[in-house]
Nucleic acid binder design. Sequence first.
DNA 1: GAATTTACATGATACTGATCATATAAAGAG
DNA 2: CTCTTTATATGATCAGTATCATGTAAATTC
Lengths: 191, 191
Amino acid sequence: MRVSREQMAENRERILETAATLFRERGFDGVGVADVMKAVGLTHGGFYGHFTSKDDLAAQALGRAFANANRWTSEAKAADPQAPLQAIASRYLSPSHRDDPGHGCPVAALGCDVVRQGGASRLAATEGVRTAIGGMSAIAPGETEEERRASAIASYATLVGALVLSRMVDDEALSDEILAAARAALEPTQQ
Amino acid sequence: MRVSREQMAENRERILETAATLFRERGFDGVGVADVMKAVGLTHGGFYGHFTSKDDLAAQALGRAFANANRWTSEAKAADPQAPLQAIASRYLSPSHRDDPGHGCPVAALGCDVVRQGGASRLAATEGVRTAIGGMSAIAPGETEEERRASAIASYATLVGALVLSRMVDDEALSDEILAAARAALEPTQQ
DNA sequence: GAATTTACATGATACTGATCATATAAAGAG
DNA sequence: CTCTTTATATGATCAGTATCATGTAAATTC
């Protein structure tokens, strides 16, 4: 049956957000079109009225996930203007982020999947990473702009790598140790 | 038809190595049992004489990939005893490693896939990561053993994160920049 | 060298999942 | 209020894939 224009827009929105979460939780191949639609409360057939294909959805959901996650940077700056990098690290490397991939960093959750993804998804990821680096550069230490940018990239890499490692291991103590070590490495070096 | 005992062992070996490469290139879900067997030059039916299931193969292939990759640490120590960490970084963050996931670091290639994998694969990964951290600790800077270990974990995370990011982006200049920034961050801080 | 074992080939089977064709009922236009 | 449009539901199709049953010929064994 038909729904109102407004309802349809909301449905599309929910499909996108739900997909963004499910993909991060189970990977692109671990989620079917029907799974997403069911989670939203619709049936699989209607999907193609909103998106042209699963790949299309994947690309847009990835863009959404990046947009949500990249907001963390400005939130950190607002929360702790003195040490925004530590604020980000603290949130990014927290057990709650580790244990909830569905609402966290798309790079840590889908990074290696995206590498094998074609076209639109790769573009969305490239744009997302570029934006993330830009945002981190604004809060990274360093005299020159180049220094800050290089430092931002390195910090970003450390965050991503540590989170992936902490999620991989099947040993909570080791997992916590990894998070703590990365947090420590991102503290300002007060020689 | 039947093959010699020796030939059978070699076949099993080739299945394992081929799977380790294909999984890293295309992900666990991107490779079928038939794909692996075909790449080895056998047919899909014989597979279950060597492994009990695809999951079994995945776990063993992951273990093999870790074993191969963890050898890099000792190779770096042998190649450049003065600066083994820089030797590893140089190899790990090279364009050739970035462009050949099939023969590289299993964390960067399969990290987020493993997180969703159950049982045996998770265990193999945990063991592999533990060994990697142990190997890196031996060449990490620091006064105490704890310092070296924490530093090793952070360096490992930076390597992994940078490689994943460099593979994700669809822009060679940005990709190279990421590799260079991470390499720079791993240089000894000669304050 | 005959008897037995077995690694692999062939060919089901059963299931999942992406996509599409068609139907329907409700929204929006007049 | 009627007519037209269309968002979604239902159901089918088609392809891919893990796993298993059975056959066969070559390697071991005695």
